[in-house]
């Protein structure tokens, strides 16, 4: 099937966004977004609500469609071609704010569904991999429970394991901790830090500034659909170059 996928050879990076524009009806949500991500890079997107940061990462696996510009992920350009989109989705894992676990399946089934149906993996193999990642997020003993029986933090860790079972090259996190009770934030962030240490390419929309400082290579600040500032975390937090960034940091850090 790989013959059908047009690979765009590039030395630019694993993700390229060039001049991406997006509208919801008449509303201009993303304005001229340019972004290059190298393999192994860890990027944190932050900004006020409605600034387009979630929309940006949702464009990367085509949960949202862009109207102008180019998006190339792992050498595959995202167009209307469903084959291209599916090949990108196989390589890009995503973790949602509200976990979106499948409530009618057990934890193990949640993790084996995609490997079996997308990667055509034998059930036993898929279960082995699932147990491996469930151990990694430290909840193997919950494998035969249903999502409704787990706490929010546990559910989000399962969601991470579920995405990892597809062995993705890139992980997208869409506000993974903002629906959690405060005492559960740490367990999820620790899991994410573990991933970062293994060299996973990560894009993360979050307001956890401590996480950004310790884990990210780059912090991107978005406002009103534009990238306003991007910098290494230390520069970003200690010496913001832009008045909008400063204002935002003041609001969020106090």
């Amino acid at each position: 099937m790989s013959e059908a996928i047009k690979k765009t050879a590039s030395a630019e990076g694993i993700i390229q966004m060039q001049g991406v524009n997006k509208w919801y009806g008449q509303f201009h949500v993303l304005k001229d977004i340019n972004l290059n991500v190298q393999p192994g890079e860890r990027i944190v997107l932050c900004g006020p609500s409605g600034s387009g940061k979630s929309t940006t990462i949702r464009c990367l696996n085509r949960l949202e469609e862009h109207q102008q510009g180019r998006i190339v992920v792992d050498g595959v350009e995202l167009t209307n071609d469903i084959k291209q989109i599916e090949s990108v989705r196989r390589e890009v894992g995503m973790v949602f704010q509200h976990f979106n676990l499948f409530p009618h399946l057990t934890i193990l089934q949640n993790c084996t569904l995609a490997p079996m149906w997308v990667r055509k993996m034998p059930k036993r193999k898929a279960e082995e991999i699932a147990m491996h990642y469930l151990e990694r997020v430290r909840i193997p003993e919950q494998a035969h429970k249903y999502p409704g029986q787990l706490s929010g933090g546990q559910q989000q860790r399962v969601a991470i394991a579920r995405a990892l079972c597809m062995k993705p090259k890139i992980m997208l996190f869409d506000e993974p901790t903002s629906a959690l009770d405060p005492e559960m934030v740490k367990e999820v962030l620790d899991t994410m830090i573990g991933l970062a240490e293994d060299g996973m390419t990560m894009l993360c929309v979050t307001h956890e500034m401590g996480f950004a400082r310790t884990v990210a290579n780059r912090v991107i600040f978005m406002d009103k659909g534009e990238i306003v500032e991007e910098a290494a975390p230390n520069d970003f937090f200690d010496n913001p170059q832009n008045d909008r960034t400063k204002l935002f940091l003041n609001q969020i850090l106090h």
Binding site: K31, Q67, D223, K224, V228, Q241, D243
Partner: peptide, 16 residues
């Protein structure tokens, strides 16, 4: 310190 100048809102491409 720079002041960010936001780009103007554009209408969506004609075919929308």
């Amino acid at each position: 310190m720079t002041t960010h100048v936001f780009k103007p809102d554009m209408p969506p491409p004609g075919n929308r």
